[in-house]
Design a binder for these strands. Structure first.
Length: 684
DNA sequence: TGACCGCTAAACATGT
DNA sequence: AACATGTTTAGCGGTC
């Protein structure tokens, strides 16, 4: 069923893609339809321009309305562009769309992760939340970058035209422009709102991942970022000296490429593009054009005009078909000459660019923070291309946080070289064939079992899971256990477990019958879940020993396991993975700063010790007959104590095998975890 | 290829 | 009877 739905989703994906892909088609179609006249238009250029205004104003459309309309047009183009980028980043089938991944300089990993083949939901299922977020951010950054370039070129082109026009003959009184600017400025807010909606839409579509606060933040700053008074300056020419800080963004426009590249650099290693080529515009204004003519490429053929692609005018909202470049130039000079409309459109584009720049800056900052948090080197050009050198002695906690490293698409958070285990080259986490092929129900056992401490990931992605209809990459058993361990007394009724699921995961707010059944099934099936008759009914507790029993066999040193641990999602380090696994088993809450529950966390060990003196028959054997008053923690511990001998044996086994990955250097942390994990056993 | 795991579905039992 | 709770079995797909 799920499989069917999944495959269905996959099948639907292309359609969606087509829908997006139809952008070009749409453009073609639309252009074709209107272009007929458009193509002929150039001939009537002069009149066309006048008539353009006249036509627009022929009706009752007020200047403000006109501007609004134009802005919408520009926004529409921006949206289409974004969607196009999102859908065709690396689409083999979209080659016709003229944008090659390489041309666009799309990081390989990003290209591989292109969502085009998958629906956002599927991606969510396939990729872990961190990965997903990283992917989204990457794409976002990429889209922003490309969009910036695209509009920048348009800006430049427009600017060039304006200059030309002004020199050619000042046909338009400047006062008119000034007046129009007022109206335009009034429309800016509207425009920004539209942009906000656009971004929100993207976010909803999973194309852009923004936290609510972030989504609103940058946008809210827009009015400030967009300083109307700066417009004239922009108009006169970029690089106006003494611009306010806000304007620096504009100036950064040229650097943005670099910035954006940096933002995506983790996915696009070094390479990167050949040096930027400095292109000199006819007006002598230097322009930085990336060698990849991606932006232009996605639109077009080399040597062509930035605003000309696919035989049509790329002017926002135009789409007029032009036979050749010459015709296009003609069209450009006539249809998009210096007039109110072009001016407004130009400004709109500038605003769009500015907004994106701001957003990009924020995202970059966020990325830096993330990297810093993950102990990566933010300043490093390609932090991900280099193996991390985790400090051997670093605390398991800090390492655990590395789980978020999986959020880095290329998962280059390499395991420590110290991992003697046969480690196969890492492949992009979540990009691995395994991950991608594991369609259907989110089966990321690798993540669940070996790499990601559920508590840690949950802590870091709490909001994500809570709000996003994403299936958590954890097994039901892990989730149930987490739910139980999160409670102070480490016991929950079935209903409370249900509630935890629904509270913590948006995903479990639907299909209740399915997952509830699964929960019950897991509770009954796994010995690690012990049903305890309580005064008020039956509660479920976790038998850590049993729970861990499930892993040791795999965790123990199996080269393949080690490999899986790393390749699965390429979480931080092997040690980290192992520690994380252990930590997850024993100190779920300690690993999660965000969710740290002092009470529960602290209760873990103390309880164990306290209860050590009151051994009780393990519930598994006793079954439901166990005393009602028996507290889960106690029980849990008791079980441990009781089975300790055998347990110790099993738990110990893993150790030796793990020798390689767990060399003496890195041994301590893990050993410590082991000890802490099974205090009772150790003691007795 | 087979063992194992996890998920889903379903049937059934029991208790409220 | 309806519902919640548990238990068990079966099938499927993925991984190793």
């Amino acid at each position: 069923m799920m499989v069917e739905s999944a495959s269905e989703t996959i099948r639907s994906a292309p359609s969606g893609q087509n829908g997006v892909g139809s952008l070009s088609g749409q453009a073609d179609g639309g252009g074709g339809g209107s272009s007929g006249g458009g193509a002929a238009g150039p001939a009537a250029g002069g009149a066309g321009r006048d008539s353009a205004v006249g036509a627009d104003s022929n009706g009752e459309m007020s200047p403000a309305e006109l501007l609004h309309f134009q802005q919408q047009q520009a926004l529409q183009v921006a949206r289409q562009f974004l969607l196009q980028q999102a859908s065709g980043l690396s689409s083999p089938g979209n080659n016709d769309s003229k944008q090659s991944a390489s041309a666009v300089q799309v990081p390989v990993s990003v290209a591989m992760m292109s969502p085009q083949m998958l629906t956002p939901q599927q991606m969510q299922q396939i990729l872990s939340p961190p990965q997903l977020q990283a992917l989204l951010q990457q794409q976002q950054a990429l889209m922003i970058q490309q969009l910036q370039e695209y509009y920048k070129k348009q800006q430049e082109q427009l600017h060039l035209q304006l200059l030309t026009q002004q020199q050619a003959g000042k046909q338009q009184p400047k006062e008119a422009l000034g007046n129009k600017q007022l109206a335009f400025q009034q429309q800016l807010l509207q425009m920004q709102q539209l942009q906000q909606q656009h971004l929100l839409n993207l976010q909803r579509q999973g194309l852009v991942s923004l936290q609510p606060s972030q989504a609103s933040g940058p946008l809210q700053t827009l009015p400030q970022a967009v300083c109307p008074t700066d417009l004239p300056q922009l108009w006169k020419g970029e690089g106006a000296p003494g611009q306010p800080a806000e304007d620096s963004v504009k100036q950064e426009g040229l650097d943005l490429t670099g910035t954006a590249t940096t933002a995506t650099s983790f996915a696009a290693p070094p390479k990167v593009s050949p040096p930027l080529s400095h292109h000199t515009l006819p007006n002598g204004q230097p322009t930085v054009l990336t060698p990849r003519r991606d932006s232009s490429s996605h639109e077009e053929t080399p040597g062509s005009h930035p605003l000309y692609g696919h035989g049509e005018c790329k002017w926002p909202g135009c789409e007029t078909l032009c036979e050749d470049l010459g015709q296009f130039i003609k069209h450009l000079n006539t249809e998009h000459a210096l007039d109110d409309r072009s001016t407004a459109q130009c400004r709109v584009q500038m605003q769009v660019v500015q907004q994106l720049e701001i957003q990009l800056a924020k995202e970059s900052e966020r990325l830096q923070a993330m990297m810093t948090h993950l102990h990566m080197r933010p300043s490093e050009p390609k932090p991900f291309s280099q193996p991390l050198n985790p400090v051997p002695g670093s605390s398991s906690f800090s390492k655990v946080t590395v789980s978020a490293a999986d959020s880095f698409p290329d998962g280059l958070a390499h395991p420590p070289t110290s991992a003697a285990a046969p480690v196969t080259p890492l492949r992009p986490p979540g990009l691995g064939s395994a991950s991608l092929h594991s369609g259907g129900p989110a089966r990321r056992r690798s993540s669940d079992k070996f790499c990601s401490p559920i508590s840690s990931e949950l802590a870091q992605n709490h909001e994500f899971y809570k709000n996003a209809d994403v299936r958590p990459p954890f097994t039901y058993a892990s989730l149930i256990r987490q739910a139980i361990l999160e409670t102070p007394d480490r016991q929950l009724t079935l209903n409370e477990i249900y509630n935890w699921f629904t509270r913590m995961f948006a995903y479990f707010r639907r299909n209740t019958a399915t997952w509830k059944n699964a929960v019950r099934h897991n509770l009954s099936l796994h010995k690690c879940f012990v049903r305890v008759e309580n005064v008020k009914g039956a509660v479920w507790t976790v038998d850590e020993r049993e729970y861990q029993k499930r892993r040791p066999p795999k965790m123990t040193g199996s080269p393949t396991l080690v490999k899986n641990m790393i390749s699965g999602l390429s979480y931080g380090t092997l040690n980290a993975s192992y520690q994380a696994a252990l930590a997850e088993s024993s100190f779920p809450l300690l690993n999660s700063p965000g969710m740290l529950n002092p009470g529960s966390a602290s209760s873990l060990l103390p309880l164990g010790h306290d209860d050590a003196g009151a051994p009780v028959e393990p519930l598994p054997s006793n079954g439901s007959s166990s005393p009602p008053r028996l507290s889960p923690p106690q029980y849990s511990h008791q079980v441990q104590v009781k089975e300790e001998p055998a347990e110790a044996e099993e738990d110990r086994r893993p150790g030796p095998p793990m020798g390689p990955p767990n060399p003496s250097t890195a041994g301590p942390p893990e050993d410590r975890d082991l000890e802490e994990e099974l205090p009772g056993e150790e003691l007795s």
